[in-house]
Design a protein around this nucleic acid. Structure first.
Lengths: 341, 341
DNA sequence: CGCTTTTCTGGTATCGCTACCAGCCTATAA
DNA sequence: TTATAGGCTGGTAGCGATACCAGAAAAGCG
């Protein structure tokens, strides 16, 4: 059985080929590429020359298997299409890339069972870290994550019982603060439109925050002031109209999603309802659109970018040996008062 | 040297452990997991039971090394933050995931040298396919891609000389068509605002299309009607104002980017310029925002989602053995006439 | 019933790299 | 000079799976 044909007849070069051409051992090539300081100037030169000459690309699959380390982080968001996550992803991507890490991205479509399948798939790929937007997980996810020992960051909310590290803000506090803010501005009857609450801890928390604020204000909790809407412009417009019809005295609408808010704003423009004259509008998340809309829209600034950046930093820290402490980082939020309220 | 300590003392289970517990050979476990039809009912049952009992996750790194195949596709877009790419990415992600493939995403920041580094890094990770938005590449990228033999899809434009497969639309034709459309509607003096052209083949093509249309119309090519602007709302607003100041008779603005267009639209609202009474506005790409804005904005519908879907399909096809034909798939575009023009 | 074919299972040898140890050679100390 | 320590380099043995072949068992066939 000595002379069987090689399994991979491909022409891609291997480390040993480079080693032969450079006149050194494979180990020296490996070292020259990964920690140049560990080899002599001369070796480094020879290796570099051979690598460049043949356009050698080390096989990181083999490297990962051997070293039991990969340089890939898995990221799962509810929806890739939703641009809300884009700035977080961008910041995380930048921070990770600066440290030689890459990002594998997938979306769970707000389905816990999909998140579970993805976590399993990512762990099978032996990712060196995970970033999950969702903070409600299936039992199996918790088990898998724990068993793997891979560092995990949750970013969408501040969970009571984090898997590992959480870098986020409080959806509850944010919604509460905005509701109180609107009340402080003098609005008497504040409607609340949120994304579907089922399987979505963020929506649920925001809803709770809204009601908590009303309670503090001594106002009755009126379920008919709250609507769930899928996140589209039409849904926002529609929700506004339905609220106004049901409550002619509505003087402010708090939309927990910028698309909903802008959809409502456009509807006001169409109907000639002055904003905030007839109704004030407040939104969630500070996207450019809200700043530039006419009128500009009062909103909550969530530090999405900072969340991505800090997530990357914490992950990198762990990979470089930081102690595995449970961390719960609250990056806060900020009310941005603008023309629409 | 027989009794050296094992390198990886970790507790994660290996295939041989599952095999032992199931009372079968590792090969049978491997087969039961990858092609269940190749093993008997009984074996499958035993393996499945052991896998479930211990929560075994196969190590895909090892599998990839051994089989010389990975299930990861690399995707490089100019900017992750830009929501424009989101629907393409989403569609590609869905199509790939349905076939067991995952997506590694990075952004080049419109820099060719970054694209090059990323392509190299992805190939080092031995991705089984690449999707590149950019269609202008460094020489080394072409060489790397060719040497790797990995299937590649370019999606941002229809290149004259595709690396491998191209799934896109013609930026040139799209810009040309919109310019002609505006002329047909009776607009006499059409300004054009585009993203920076440097290192951006899409912008360059759009610009060419605009001028080609003017030439067909027998109108002079006036460079002062063309502005380059970075893609923000303010930049769009600013570009509009500058164009209007320079050309008081400007009656239409074609913005090659939806954020620019909406920024301009907002500026009109602020200044009380009726759209299209004082000036018509046309955009590029059919995002929801344009349909719902007041007035709704005339634009070009680019089949971003379809591009992502077809890209995934072609890639999957190749991986399943389709012949390596050069493909150049033009998915076209569509003019969406709305209130703003 | 013996023989061929098919179906299924298991052993062995990698996949391409890195961890770990051994050994060499030079430098510094005693 | 000999001992001791470092700095570098190379050999060897995996990492945890899969490809490939061999062989046993079951099935088909005349």
């Amino acid at each position: 059985m000595r002379d069987r044909a090689p399994r991979n007849s491909g022409s891609t070069l291997k480390m040993r080929d480079i080693a032969r051409h450079a006149g050194v051992s494979p180990m020296t090539v490996s070292r020259a590429l990964r920690q140049p300081s560990a080899v002599s100037e001369e070796m480094r030169r020879k290796v570099d020359a051979a690598v460049r000459e043949f356009g050698y690309l080390p096989n990181r699959i083999a490297g990962s298997l051997s070293s039991n380390r990969t340089n890939v982080v898995g990221l799962i968001v509810p929806s890739i299409r939703n641009s809300l996550y884009a700035s977080m992803i961008q910041a995380a991507s930048d921070g990770l890339r600066a440290n030689g890490l890459h990002l594998m991205i997938a979306d769970s479509g707000h389905r816990l069972e999909d998140e579970e399948a993805l976590v399993a798939a990512f762990l099978a790929q032996r990712v060196c870290g995970l970033i999950l937007h969702n903070t409600v997980h299936s039992k199996r996810v918790r088990k898998l994550v724990e068993a793997s020992g891979v560092p995990v960051i949750e970013t969408g909310n501040l969970p009571d019982d984090p898997l590992d590290m959480a870098v986020s803000y409080s959806n509850f506090e944010a919604a509460r603060a905005m509701t109180l803010h609107l009340a402080r501005l003098g609005y008497r009857r504040i409607g609340f439109v949120t994304l579907p609450v089922r399987d979505n801890d963020r929506s649920e928390e925001r809803r709770r925050g809204y009601f908590a604020a009303l309670a503090e204000l001594g106002r009755p909790a009126d379920e008919s002031l709250v609507l769930e809407a899928d996140g589209g412009f039409s849904e926002g417009a529609d929700a506004l109209v339905r609220l106004m019809n049901a409550h002619p005295d509505l003087d402010a609408g708090f939309f927990a999603g910028e698309v909903l808010a802008v959809g409502a704003l456009f509807e006001c423009q169409r109907r000639g309802w002055p904003v905030p004259g007839r109704i004030a509008i407040a939104s969630f998340d500070d996207v450019d659109l809200l700043r530039h809309a006419v009128p500009s829209v009062t909103t909550l600034r969530i530090p999405r970018q900072e969340i991505g950046k800090r997530s990357a930093e914490l992950l990198v820290g762990r990979l470089q040996g930081a102690p595995a402490d449970r961390i719960r980082l609250d990056l806060g939020f900020e009310i941005v008062q603008r023309e629409s309220s």
